[in-house]
Design a binder for these strands. Structure first.
Ligand SMILES: Nc1ccn([C@H]2C[C@H](O)[C@@H](COP(=O)(O)OP(=O)(O)OP(=O)(O)O)O2)c(=O)n1
Ligand SMILES: [Mg+2]
Length: 424
DNA sequence: GCGGATCAC
DNA sequence: TATGGTGATCCGC
């Protein structure tokens, strides 16, 4: 597992081993460089660079004595976090392998060995491993993927199918942890310490058994990570994909050994921007993060430094979220948005808004919910996004009321919006 | 309360 | 020719 781990992690994503990344970068760039999308992305990146530069200036102005004071306080904070470390939980993160693509392969086995992606020329949801060899991946426009891999076959997505197979996997998860947490259709967190004790099985054997059962019941493969925290379990589930697993022993040393060279970008919640920001301060791995803890606390908000310190020492996310019996997830928003051929025709746009309002109202009614606010989302033809929000005098699920509110917001932007490519 | 940004999948 | 949809969270007003 260790060597596979190292190998997989020198690459961006499972299945990308051996991909000529420079070539992929060049093709993606060449296909994009003259587009409005590229221009907007470039502008956003410039804004990120500016923000980072401002942060560097701030860092340079911190007096060494101030940093030393911070350091002492940070060490105190880290010591408290360390004292709270809990190695008694056994978290498993299960993640289906190239989920959407694998579901289609079940019904069309001939697609297993030909490069295939779910989606179309505009956008790809995911790709099978044959396609990943060419650098094809999630969220890549199909026409670029096709340039990377001319033989690439597209398959239309089918959410009813994905939901069906997701429910089959959940039947299995339930046996191992009735309180399992499904983040999305294709993954779940399970806490299996009770199961292991009851069956006198090791966590590794339980993970093997779970994966075997998922395979038998669905004919789909999945990968698993086992660790004392959810965060680390998730890192591990990616390490030996596909159809593999990795276990971190529940000791402080094992956790520290893993973290010392683990790129921060592998941690859930660390995306492109935070990764770039940290990199600007010489922080690439969780080990770097721990070394630079004083700087981290000096530069980031309390919320973010709490998160980053937890990442650095591998604590956080070990407790099962406290939920009263009968608890059901409470949604905070419900939305509908749609991309279309860019148009500036105000009547046509207004009609789209009304249609979206109908759908949202139906969604609210279906879940017996009322909304207190309405947000209108607009994406201009040049991919710039703007949102306008309003609070209603009283909660509603009436389509007309929602539509009227959205149309008021829309008219308020009339002078600025011009041609749009998306409304929500 | 609002609007932009970031992140996950 | 062609760059998605849904939901959550945080920051700075
Ligand atoms: N930007 C994205 C990322 C993912 N998905 C969908 C398609 C995936 O099949 C599914 C699960 O996401 P994963 O990140 O787990 O990716 P896969 O399961 O496809 O591949 P892997 O084997 O790397 O987990 O979510 C999507 O629509 N858009
Ligand atoms: Mg997956």
């Amino acid at each position: 597992p260790t060597s596979a781990f190292t190998n997989a992690f020198t690459n961006a994503k499972a299945g990308m081993e051996g991909v000529d990344r420079e070539m992929v970068k060049r093709v993606v760039h060449d296909m994009s460089v003259n587009s409005a999308h590229f221009a907007t992305e470039s502008r956003k990146e410039a804004a990120v660079e500016a923000k980072i530069l401002a942060m560097k200036k701030r860092a340079a102005s911190i007096r060494p004595s101030a940093l030393a004071t911070i350091k002492a306080a940070v060490d105190d904070r880290v010591a408290r976090m360390e004292a709270s470390r809990d190695l008694t939980k056994t978290w498993v993160h299960v993640d289906m392998d190239s989920f959407f693509a694998s579901v289609h392969i079940l019904e069309r086995p001939e697609l297993r060995d030909v490069p295939m992606a779910v989606g179309g020329m505009s956008m790809i949801s995911t790709a099978n491993y044959a396609a990943r060899k060419f650098g094809v991946r999630s969220a890549m426009p199909g026409f670029i993927a096709k340039k990377l891999c001319p033989q690439l076959v597209f398959v239309d997505s089918d959410f009813a199918k994905y939901k069906h197979y997701a429910s089959l996997t959940r039947e299995v998860f339930k046996e191992y942890d009735p309180q399992f947490d499904a983040g999305s259709l294709d993954e779940a967190y399970l806490e299996i310490s009770a199961y292991c004790a009851g069956k006198s099985m090791t966590p590794a054997d339980v993970a093997e058994a779970l994966r075997r059962e998922v395979r038998e019941k669905t004919k789909l493969t999945c990968s698993a990570g086992v660790a004392p925290t959810r965060r680390l379990a998730k890192v591990c589930s990616d390490a030996n994909k596909p159809d593999g697993q990795m276990v971190i022993e529940p000791t402080r040393d094992a956790v520290a050994a893993l973290l010392s060279s683990l790129p921060v970008r592998k941690i859930g919640g660390v995306g492109k921007v935070l990764d770039r920001t940290l990199a600007a301060f010489g922080i690439a791995t969780c080990g770097d993060l721990l070394r630079e803890r004083a700087l981290v606390v000096a530069l980031f908000s309390e919320v973010q430094s709490d998160f980053l310190l937890g990442v650095a020492i591998g604590v956080g996310g070990e407790a099962r979220p406290a939920r009263p019996p009968g608890w059901a997830p409470q949604r905070k928003s419900l939305s509908q948005e749609r991309t279309f051929a860019p148009t500036a025709d105000a009547r046509a746009l207004a009609a789209k808004i009304a249609a979206l309002a109908e759908e949202v109202a139906a969604g609210l009614a279906r879940e017996n919910l009322l909304t207190r606010t309405v947000t209108l989302k607009m994406k201009r033809a040049d991919f710039e996004v703007a949102q306008r929000q309003t609070s209603l005098p009283r909660p509603t699920n009436d389509a007309q009321t929602i539509s009227d509110a959205a149309l008021r917001l829309f008219r308020g932007e009339k002078n600025t919006h011009g041609s749009l490519r998306l409304l929500g």
